[in-house]
């Protein structure tokens, strides 16, 4: 095709509906008859067909990239750990300590509950495959954002979904996790708090741990301790010990 034809919107949509098979048999026959006598229409039809098939393949390829990244995510974490060269890290840590020392003298230190939060918090790595119904495209898009650290975008997408599924624990959990990753204690508590009475949920264990951390981040130490007493996380005992020192 040398140059694309100008195809007005109405005509483009008519051709498209023919290609999708969304028109009646009579309309379809009439369209084919018209193409036989109208060479321009035939060219336009070929053009629309090429565009549609190209777009479909492009969209598939975009999905395949996402699916591939999902498979690689856990492996990457392992290989990164294996191949760490400690010297640059040590140097970076030394510089960091100097900066901390300098900042310490100028500004008062961070409140200890925030320091403890930073020490114990590690974000949830996200899901590879979450729910099993076919309507998960929206959820998955948000999960891709979440895993790329685009927590705000993930929140926007998931908040749209939760409007129709207010009791969905996967959505509640990841909305809580995203807010926590952004260090927004209040919305994180709002979403994670719904797990207190959901011991049957697959997310219960992680949710109670993160809820404790969200309370800690928000300076609500008593509530944090309360939650930690419900949590099965291996770090629980250690954090409780630290909290006693506060």
């Amino acid at each position: 095709m040398k140059n694309p034809n100008h195809i007005p919107q109405e005509e483009f949509e008519r051709i498209e509906q023919y290609i999708f098979g969304n028109i009646s048999a009579e309309e379809s026959d009439a369209f084919e008859l018209e193409m036989e006598s109208d060479n321009d229409l035939r060219k336009k039809y070929l053009e629309v067909k090429t565009i549609i098939s190209g777009l479909e393949e492009a969209a598939l390829r975009e999905d395949l990239e996402i699916f591939h990244k999902e498979m690689e995510a856990p492996t990457q974490r392992i290989t990164t750990n294996r191949s760490i060269n400690y010297w640059p890290w040590a140097a970076a840590a030394a510089i960091f300590l100097c900066i901390v020392a300098a900042v310490w003298t100028i500004y008062p230190p961070t409140p200890s509950h925030e320091r403890l939060f930073a020490q114990f918090y590690q974000e949830d790595p996200g899901l590879i495959t979450a729910m099993s119904s076919a309507s998960n495209y929206e959820f998955d898009r948000a999960m891709v954002d979440y895993k790329s650290g685009k927590y705000e975008e993930a929140i926007v997408r998931w908040e749209k979904l939760i409007q129709n599924n207010p009791e969905n624990d996967t959505l509640q959990y990841f909305l809580g996790a995203s807010n926590l990753a952004l260090k927004k204690a209040d919305p994180a508590i709002f979403y994670l708090n719904s797990f207190v009475s959901k011991e049957e949920s697959a997310f219960y264990e992680d949710a109670t741990w993160y809820l404790a951390l969200a309370y800690l981040l928000g300076g609500k130490v008593d509530e944090a301790i309360n939650m930690l007493n419900q949590s099965q996380n291996p770090q629980t005992a250690k954090l409780l010990k630290e909290l006693e020192k506060l």
């Binding site: 598939l60 699916f67 591939h68 999902e70 498979m71 495959t129 076919a134 495209y137």
Partner: peptide, 9 residues
């Protein structure tokens, strides 16, 4: 998407 993902992976 769900079926294509699982087949792919």
């Amino acid at each position: 998407s769900e079926i294509i993902r699982q087949f792919y992976q």
